[in-house]
């Protein structure tokens, strides 16, 4: 019995020192456009988790202006680093540019499938489009994320920019990109979904 308790303790100790690698693949929101690297929400997520004693390593594979089309090549690039989690925050630029939603959905599906095939847990960050894009397009866009969550059994953040989108206080002058305060809020939103999974 004592031996088993000893072995279990050893596993717990080892477990607490094992590092979790989280890969963020997104666009300018996740790249941290206009704010220093350490103030972008992926870095803040890392800081907060590490402060709580969770050993995480962040990889940020985000590119400003990118669409879902480039997600797969970036995931392939980072596979060498063997990430445990993929936070997929793509799709906003597809929607804003009016790209056919079937195409965006196909791209996201490919990325998620590749990640899953490598045993990477996927968190899909949901996006919403501004009201001016029209009810039909907006609903179809929002539903795309829900559909993928259901179909591929992944985790989903309902809206990445919750409390930030459209709020002048949390955005830079361009009204699109979050400022440092905005990134703080996004980090909290992400942690609500991510932390329980660690």
């Amino acid at each position: 019995m004592k031996i088993w308790i000893g072995i279990l303790s050893l596993f717990i100790c080892l477990g607490s020192y094992a590092q979790t690698t989280i890969l963020f693949v997104g666009d300018s929101l996740t790249e941290g456009y206009g704010v220093p690297k350490e103030k972008s929400y992926p870095s803040l997520v890392s800081d907060k988790l590490n402060k709580k004693g969770k050993k995480v390593k962040i990889l940020n594979g985000s590119v400003s202006g990118s669409t879902t089309a480039s997600g797969i090549s970036r995931l392939r690039w980072f596979l060498k680093a063997k990430p445990d989690f993929l936070l997929l925050a793509l799709g906003a630029n597809d929607g804003l540019r009016g790209i056919k939603l079937q195409e965006s959905e196909k791209n996201l599906r490919e990325i998620i499938k590749l990640a899953k095939s490598k045993k990477i847990k996927v968190i899909l960050a949901g996006m919403l489009l501004p009201v001016n894009y029209g009810e039909k397009y907006r609903t179809e866009f929002e539903d795309m994320f829900k559909k993928l969550e259901k179909e591929l059994t992944i985790y989903r953040i309902p809206f990445l920019l919750k409390g930030v989108g459209g709020e002048a206080e949390y955005n830079q002058n361009d009204g699109i990109h979050p400022n440092e305060k905005g990134h703080e809020l996004i980090a909290e939103t992400v942690l609500k979904t991510l932390e329980p999974l660690l």
């Binding site: 941290g32 206009g34 690297k37 830079q172 440092e180």
Partner: peptide, 23 residues
Amino acid sequence: IEVSLERGLTREEQRERRFRNRG
């Protein structure tokens, strides 16, 4: 070269700092 966007900066200062922070 990256710098923080502190509050109270003028529009020009903010633009210059964003230029440095921009990818």
